[in-house]
Simulated scan of single mutants.
Amino acid sequence: MGAPAAGALTEAFEAERRGLFAHAYRMLGAYHEAEDVVQDAYVRALRGWHTFEGRSSVRAWLYRITTNVCLTVIASRGRETPFVVEPFPTDPADLVTERESVRLAFVAGLRHLAPRQRAVLLLREVLAFSAAETGETLGMSVPAVKSALQRARARLAEVAPDRDDVLDAASPRAQQLLAEYMAAWEASDADAFREVLRADAAIEPVGSGTTYAGRESCLAFAVPSMGVARQWRMVAIEANGQPAVVAWFRGEPFGVAVLTVAEDGIVAITLFGDPKLAENFLNR
């Protein structure tokens, strides 16, 4: 393979990198695994570039490779490995990644789909590939793709129903609620925290297997951790197209909290208590 051909592939790959990364994240739910998949996909594409005959677009070919690397990763996990969703950095200026397609509720809902159903749904509904392109990617007939898509839609509707009232991270009300949330925690003000929560709010500490449902349950769980004023420090970010914070406690990184917000308050707080996430989000 000559240098011009390799250069052409690299240029095409870099143009699609962000979208491929988001696709791998949706397939796997894991930020770090998605990074590894994208690197692996590039190496595989580079090795196979001389066999590319142009029967599909380069974009479709790259997504085919990435999808199949993801399926291999999923198969290697084994049935006992849990699907644990990690937060995904999003940028308001990023036009490649559709916010709706990386919202936590959507990505978490994908875990309830069989891997190939998940791939069909993402290729058809998020990436807008045709049934024929999807079938070629996954080695399925067009009728099989259509059947898998129908089943995936039905299952996803059961486990991750749409929330029409959820606000985009960039909306003024979402930004206001985020600021009030941060101020409450930094001031250790339990009453202010109560004010930003909806009556049906929920807190989910990821990995705990527990969800605290209802405002009073949320307060009973969270307030004892508030400490005294200025023990918590927070920086506003955007994750999964939602308002979020990177948090430090007593000067040490704590992790990331992702908020699901509506006009009348915070609907859900998803806590990722992993100190390494601070570096992921602030040093991008």
Results as ranks from 00 to 15, higher is better:
Val142Gly: 07
Ala60Met: 05
Glu125Ile: 14
Thr67Glu: 07
Val145Ala: 06
Asn68Phe: 08
Arg26Ala: 09
Ala262Leu: 03
Val38Lys: 00
Lys276Cys: 08
Ala132Leu: 15
Arg151Leu: 15
Glu263Trp: 08
Asp94Asn: 08
Pro253Leu: 06
Gly273Ser: 13
Ser56Pro: 00
Ala262His: 02
Ala239Lys: 01
Asp162Ala: 07
Phe129Asp: 07
Ala222Lys: 02
Cys70Asn: 03
Pro253Phe: 05
Tyr42Ser: 05
Trp232Ala: 03
His23Lys: 05
Gln150Leu: 15
Gly139Met: 10
Val159Gly: 02
Gly54Ala: 10
Ala131Gln: 10
Glu86Cys: 09
Trp49Lys: 04
Glu35Lys: 13
Thr137Ser: 10
Ala5Val: 14
Arg59Gln: 10
Phe281Trp: 12
Ala201Glu: 09
Thr97Lys: 02
Arg284Ala: 13
Pro172Ala: 04
Leu95Lys: 09
Asp164Met: 08
Leu156Lys: 01
His32Gln: 11
Gly78Asn: 07
Leu9Cys: 05
Ser217Asp: 09
Val196Cys: 05
Ser101Phe: 11
Ala6Asp: 03
Ala229Thr: 10
Arg77Ser: 03
Tyr31Leu: 15
Val120Arg: 01
Trp232Gln: 07
Arg59Met: 12
Arg284Trp: 13
Ala213Tyr: 06
Glu14Ala: 10
Ala213Pro: 02
Asp200Gln: 13
Asn283Arg: 12
Thr210Val: 15
Glu204Met: 11
Ala105Leu: 02
Ala201Thr: 02
Val58Ile: 15
Val43Leu: 14
Thr51Ala: 11
Thr211Val: 15
Ala108Pro: 00
Thr97Leu: 05
Arg198Asp: 02
Leu123Lys: 05
Gly29Cys: 10
Arg59Ile: 12
Thr66Asp: 04
Met234Val: 03
Arg116Leu: 13
Thr10Pro: 00
Ser147Gln: 15
Val166Lys: 00
Val261Asn: 03
Leu95Phe: 10
Met140Val: 13
Tyr31Val: 14
Ala190Pro: 07
Gly135Lys: 04
Glu204Leu: 14
Asp162Lys: 04
Arg103His: 11
Ser147Leu: 14
Asp94Trp: 12
Arg116Glu: 14
Ala160Cys: 12
His50Ala: 14
Ala184Val: 06
Leu127Asp: 05
Gly251Cys: 07
Ala183Cys: 06
Glu80Cys: 06
Ile237Met: 07
Ala169Asn: 02
Leu20Ile: 07
Tyr212Leu: 13
Ala244Arg: 00
Cys70Ile: 12
Gly255Ile: 12
Leu110Pro: 01
Gly207Ile: 15
Leu95Met: 10
Leu122Cys: 09
Ala75Trp: 01
Gly273Lys: 11
Ala236Ile: 02
Ala30Met: 10
Phe249Asp: 07
Ala183Gln: 09
Val223Thr: 15
Glu279Val: 06
Leu46Met: 14
Val142Asp: 12
Ala202Thr: 13
Pro275Gln: 08
Ala236Asn: 00
Glu80Asn: 06
Val245Tyr: 00
Pro115Cys: 05
Asp200Arg: 04
Val43Gly: 03
